[in-house]
Design a protein around this nucleic acid. Structure first.
Lengths: 338, 338
DNA sequence: TCAAATCAGTAAATCGTTTTACTTAGGTTA
DNA sequence: TAACCTAAGTAAAACGATTTACTGATTTGA
């Protein structure tokens, strides 16, 4: 206001004619012992000066920050945006505030994250991205031991807190749905490199095929970039094969498959049955509605936060793995092979 | 590692057999004057101890944090996710690191943001959300004067740094496109309350109508929740009118309109011409491709960051407003009225 | 040869809080 | 009335870095 210096606790103390200690205590709700009158004065001085305690000073002395970080691979993928949101919804009521870090292929990002975490900004960490996670875990978990919980695409080590879905079973079930409809020639759209959870998901697909005495046909497995763009490209190749059904690694990719088939004047489900994975909220706006495996995204957020807070408060408790159930959601994008 | 205390600069100094000052200077690249040997020792000690300077201590003393904040209304809206990403891409190469704060209707969030900013975490601020912005601006800009740049949905005061598109002209052009195709009965899908930029956009729509000697028909203006859900709901009402074209306030809403019309077995563009606004990347995956007004989102990110950094480095320079050009992108969702 | 300049390095103040361990005055107890 | 509490408040240490202003030793210059 007048000077250029920022308002400090000392200013408040002076204005209230009282010591710094007293101000701090009262402002932090530890001032039961002080008279009502004093409390009054402090609050009045605070609002008049519009005083906010300095974040750094405060962080330096007490370890009283309430930030937790969540690292996701790509904010543009609605599944991860949702995950971020669900973590937020779970964490805020418990007094923690999540910060979303999206890697998005920036090498600098990963370095920056590591620096952030190593330098003590975050009280805990939720990792859902693959590469970053590994590097971060290596750097941080040995040395400092910052609380962390792994989920989804993170490279999940056995001896960590983890929240998972049963990827293999889920993969098996969705593939089985396709096979039960009589499809024999099934195309897959999967990314160039499979993260740990996706490897399991794919194993599930294979298991279903085995049970039907079928084999996944190598020439029907298409590697594509993650995201809808990959789906479009894959569709162009798929129409040149004898496939009658398409299993996309997730909904984001499936959306691209939709577009690709549309461009090529192919109909869903008449010409191709299509399934995805995740059940992102955008699904609701696809036509026809997409058959997919729904992840309990809110539940995941809830559990991840629960585990993390427990680890923060109780650092030596035994590590836990929580496995959540998925649910097959049958839409109009799949139908019996005629 | 051994003890439980975290590694400090003093540990590094001891290990290297050298003073704290020297370590700090060298680690911060201000150690030209020291001998190669000393530098060696310092770096060796650093890596061996895996030392990272404490974020808070560092923030407290120098104001040397490089975080900037960006406040958006909703991370699930791809336009804002994109905006966040474009800011990231512009800021990182310049040594700044953006943190995304998504309001998503949480009142707690706004409070938390204000606290964060007021307490000095961020070096600067980019505001793209409406409510939050107003509160934040009120609180912060008078008192502390934290550098900030306003854009998109923020309540844009004349005397601030701003990056805009010409909302009115853009609105006019897209409406004109519809009218030039011969449509006379045009439905609108807009949110319950219009943010400042949307008011202008709507004014643009009106202008186009005037030029065609038409008036916007009140009973064809549908208020709906922001986002695709609102679009679906509006579609149900629109099909009961004589409208032949639909102007959605943005692409996110238009996506919902697509779905709604699909559910009701209406075709685009045969039964309804549809336009949106923004040109979100998801557009590419809609069928038919959506006619929309493309926002130069990367350019926006670039300019916003440029303005902010300039304000940070040069606090008393004159405030600036930058207006960027949009571009009409004609897709297959509009056609001449027959 | 002696003052000045350079080199390599350091001690100590500082940032703005929180928190521990005190102080002082007044009131109780026995 | 002495010994002890309690209530209300405070002084000062601590957190971990950065940075300013020094120091002592060596080299340079005229």
């Amino acid at each position: 206001m007048k000077g250029n210096r920022k308002t400090t606790i000392r200013d408040v103390a002076n204005k209230a004619g009282i010591s710094v200690t007293t101000v701090s205590l009262i402002l932090n709700g530890k001032g039961e012992r002080f008279s009502e009158e004093t409390k009054e004065k402090v609050h009045k001085a605070q609002t008049e000066l519009d005083y906010y305690p300095d974040y750094y000073a405060r962080g330096l002395v007490g370890q009283r920050t309430n930030s937790i970080g969540i690292v996701i691979p790509d904010i543009m993928n609605p599944f991860f945006a949702s995950l971020g949101l669900s973590v937020e919804q779970a964490a805020i009521p418990k007094g923690y505030f999540p910060q979303i870090f999206s890697v998005n292929g920036f090498k600098e990002n990963i370095d920056y994250f590591i620096e952030q975490f190593a330098s003590g900004t975050q009280k805990g960490l939720i990792l859902a991205a693959p590469g970053a996670s590994k590097e971060i875990v290596d750097k941080l978990s040995t040395h400092n031991n910052i609380p962390m919980v792994l989920t989804d695409q993170a490279d999940l080590n056995i001896n960590d807190d983890r929240v998972l879905i049963d990827e293999e079973e889920s993969g098996e079930k969705i593939a089985e749905h396709i096979l039960s409809l009589g499809h024999k020639h099934v195309a897959f759209v999967i990314p160039e490199t499979l993260t740990m959870n996706l490897v399991k998901r794919f194993t599930g697909y294979e298991k279903a095929f085995e049970r039907y005495n079928l084999k996944i046909e190598k020439e029907l497995v298409f590697r594509a970039t993650f995201g809808p763009k990959g789906g479009v490209e894959a569709a162009h190749k798929i129409v040149q094969t004898n496939a009658t059904a398409i299993i996309a690694i997730n909904d984001d990719v499936a959306m691209g498959v939709y577009k690709g088939l549309n461009l090529l004047n192919k109909r869903i489900p008449e010409d191709y049955s299509v399934v995805g994975f995740d059940d992102i909220s955008l699904n609701k706006y696809l036509t026809p509605s997409l058959t997919t495996m729904a992840q309990p995204i809110n539940e995941i957020g809830e559990q991840v936060v629960g585990l993390l807070i427990n680890r923060i408060k109780n650092p030596s408790s035994a590590k836990k793995t929580i496995i959540l159930n998925t649910k097959l959601k049958i839409g109009d994008s799949t139908r019996e092979l005629i």
